[in-house]
Design a protein around this nucleic acid. Structure first.
Lengths: 228, 228
DNA sequence: CGGCATCCATTTTGATACTG
DNA sequence: CAGTATCAAAATGGATGCCG
């Protein structure tokens, strides 16, 4: 079946031809937390039909946004991973995510799904790479009963949903509403830590590094560190 | 009928609940060139059914992205216009549009629609407001047989599709492929003018101001600092 | 099992006709 | 001009089947 297209010579229209269909950008968001298997994608995206997920992944592969890779030796499972173009797309999605959180995220409803990796993948690009050049640390974020991990290693930042089998150096615990306040620029990170809305336990040195490397307030300057 | 939602507590998912359906972001793009009437939206978006346009506009109004306004006295027509939230959304769309132009816009095909206002609305936010504080000028852009206008006035930048009834101070003429090269950072503005891919006619002072106020090269991080 | 493909009921979309 | 009404075509959600 031929792909539906807007037939407009316009960057936005072309983007939407590629990633404008239902679920597509959420699949990309899932892959922002590193490579994932088909089932893990399926689990993370409640409500997507298994056949639709397969179709979307095939399209994203054709369009050079993701690629399929066989994990080495022991795992031997097939994972989907973002290409370079997919990583760029992921960065381009940040402003849209911030718009959504500012204007259309209220209190969390009982019917809402939530995974700690969702805010993390959007926060990770905001980490100042210069400031973590010499920091190797694993952070666990516990939010609303879910857990996700962010690692600083050799000046790189990676996010993962699954437990990396090591103990984290620092455990950061907070509530979804606090994440909304921070992401919307309505609160500063230091204030939130100071008044206990964010609790930080573990290695104090690594903990301090985390808060140094993150923007204290997410606002206009938030995107500036995204250099590509 | 109840809106379909992803039911995820995530800024991106919420954005997509609001503007993720077919045509919605293109309607917003159309309104980035100022208020428009229903018919003008319908004309600019070839292929959208009139009933779907009406539905989308109603939803966007409910969600505070656009509002309806009666034009004063002589015109007396009803126009749709972006709200403050809609303007923020428009800025958030720029990185997505740049991603599309970089990765998925090739040569213009005969079946492609094109309007000069499409690139203009994404270029306008990149104008350095400081540098045009004292410049009042009207620029006409002629691209692929279509024409659109950009005005600098009191440090503000506005884009319009329709002829403002005055003669432009400067007429800039070029081809769609040149716009793609510039938007993708594959060419600099000054080079394109120097080798004649962009022709500039009219008031030399105003013309110089335009090129001073635009970034010479558009890189992938362009626009990220504008996301509010 | 993981990784899909197929089938079918429900929604969404596109195209056209029609109304104040 | 600014939409609504209607109906066919396409996309989606959910269940199930298949195959290594």
């Amino acid at each position: 079946m031929a792909r539906r297209t807007y037939n407009q010579f316009c960057g936005l229209a072309r983007s939407l031809d590629i990633v404008g269909e239902r679920w597509t950008l959420l699949i990309v968001r899932e892959l922002m937390a590193g490579p994932k298997r088909y089932v893990d994608l399926s689990d993370g995206l409640e409500g997507i039909g298994t056949s639709l997920l397969a179709t979307r992944l095939r399209q994203l592969e054709e369009d050079g946004v993701v690629y399929k890779r066989q994990l080495p030796k022991p795992a031997a499972s097939l994972v989907y991973q973002l290409t370079e173009s997919g990583e760029e797309l992921a960065r381009a999605m940040l402003p849209l995510a911030l718009w959504g959180i500012r204007h259309h995220v209220g209190p969390m409803s009982p019917s809402d799904e939530f995974h700690a990796e969702w805010p993390l993948v959007f926060i990770a690009p905001l980490v100042d790479r210069e400031k973590i050049r010499d920091t190797n640390a694993l952070y666990e974020f516990r939010i609303a009963g879910t857990s996700a991990f962010m690692r600083f290693h050799d000046g790189e930042v990676t996010v993962s949903a699954s437990d990396p089998a090591e103990a984290a150096d620092v455990v950061v615990s907070t509530e979804p509403s606090v994440v909304v306040d921070l992401s919307g620029g309505r609160s500063t990170l230091l204030d939130a830590v100071a008044d206990g809305r964010i609790s930080v336990e573990g290695d104090p040195i690594a903990g301090a590094k985390l808060f140094e490397a993150l923007p204290d307030r997410i606002d206009a300057s938030a995107g500036l560190s995204l250099t590509l």
